[in-house]
Write a protein that binds this DNA or RNA. Structure first.
Lengths: 207, 207
DNA sequence: GTAGTTGTTGGCACAGCGCCAATAGTGCAC
DNA sequence: GTGCACTATTGGCGCTGTGCCAACAACTAC
């Protein structure tokens, strides 16, 4: 008679994956403070101590989940570098909105949290993700002719990204705007920034 | 010989104020999790239990601090309702930038925190503050002629608010942009929204 | 079968928080 | 000036949640 094993022994990667999945689920469901390591462990069908073994602390696990969720989907854009500026901007906006609707409700909304007691590490992760998105946009609209003052352009687009994210939320979550309206807003805003604000800002030079 | 009292007995309001001030200081200094109630109590020169007596839990105290910090300063705007649209927008932008520079480094930056484990109550507070700011802007630019589709306008301006906040951060904290550049960005963006995006969005009607 | 490897467990120790009965300032009545 | 009621304030008890680690048990190779 072979005795039934009391628990299955898995390879490190697989077990790690299971725990991570449970963490993802629960952190998407409730705020951080309302998810105990015991909850995650129970959900993964595992002893609590194992979390600390695979990921360090509860916080480390959380940051990893956030990093994953915040990462920009690798959707390759239909890079049509040949079009007019407006066409390129349209492509960038379309890409952005698509990548938003692709993510489910547990998507990352805004980067900042509050300035009070803000968490530097968490902030770093979210800003990094934001910067990646900015890169994607810049790459798509292809502002190769702007050789100087790239920093200003980046700063403008970074701010623009917040507008885009919020507008996306007005569409997806609050249902206050239609996709067309959001698209319109994003296109015109970006157009204004690139065609109008940036040249003028360059003219006045940097402070 | 009158024995020295071991501690001063203050009126409730005054003591509450002192504790609140300590909480403000510390929460601005370190992230929430790194500020213990013991720290706050020590800083205020008071027993830990008193925090719970005046404010409920540590979290309640924190939320109160955030509420205070997020509240829009009551700076009255030089309401010049007579000017052109561009002048009114300029006034709104100026007000906004002034109110930003008025607040110190501990100002509220972005409303959202992350979609993962987002805190509904905290979010409500920040959105409320944001909405107040939106009201202020709308009131200043005085779009009385837009009688219908006010919801869309609000949604647009809400998104715009994120742009503004981020741009402000690029100026005040990251020093990536000058005030003039930010002003330019904010003016043109709002102008585009009001003159260009909104009419077009109305034309296409709401989804 | 047996020994070695290592994924996994269970519990110990500790920090932080909410709570509450006891305590000690403070002002009022006389 | 003395006692008394009032309540601001304390100090510590108990609980929850976390990180850690030594023991254990499943699997593998021979």
């Amino acid at each position: 008679m072979t005795t039934e094993p009391r628990w299955r022994r898995l390879g490190p990667d697989q077990r790690r994956e299971e725990i991570f999945a449970s963490a993802q689920r629960l952190f998407a469901l409730r705020p951080y403070r309302d998810v105990s390591t015991a909850d995650i462990a129970a959900d993964a069908g595992v002893a609590r101590g194992l979390l600390n073994h695979y990921f360090g602390t509860k916080r480390d696990l959380y940051l990893e989940v956030v990093r994953e969720a915040a990462s920009v989907p690798e959707n390759v854009i239909d890079h049509a570098p040949g079009g007019t500026l407006e066409e390129r901007i349209d492509a960038a906006v379309t890409w952005f909105l698509d990548s938003l609707s692709g993510q489910d409700a547990a998507w990352i909304s805004a980067a900042g949290s509050s300035g009070l007691g803000r968490d530097p590490e968490l902030e770093r992760i979210l800003l990094k993700a934001e910067d990646d998105a900015v890169d994607r946009v810049l790459e798509t609209i292809d502002m190769a002719d702007v050789t100087d003052h790239r920093d200003e352009l980046r700063a403008f687009v970074r701010a623009y990204g917040q507008l885009a994210k919020t507008a996306g939320r007005e569409w997806l979550i609050k249902k206050q705007l239609s996709r067309e309206q959001v698209h319109l807003l994003l296109r015109q805003s970006l157009l204004t920034i690139v065609e109008d604000v940036l040249p003028e800002a360059i003219a006045r030079d940097r402070a």
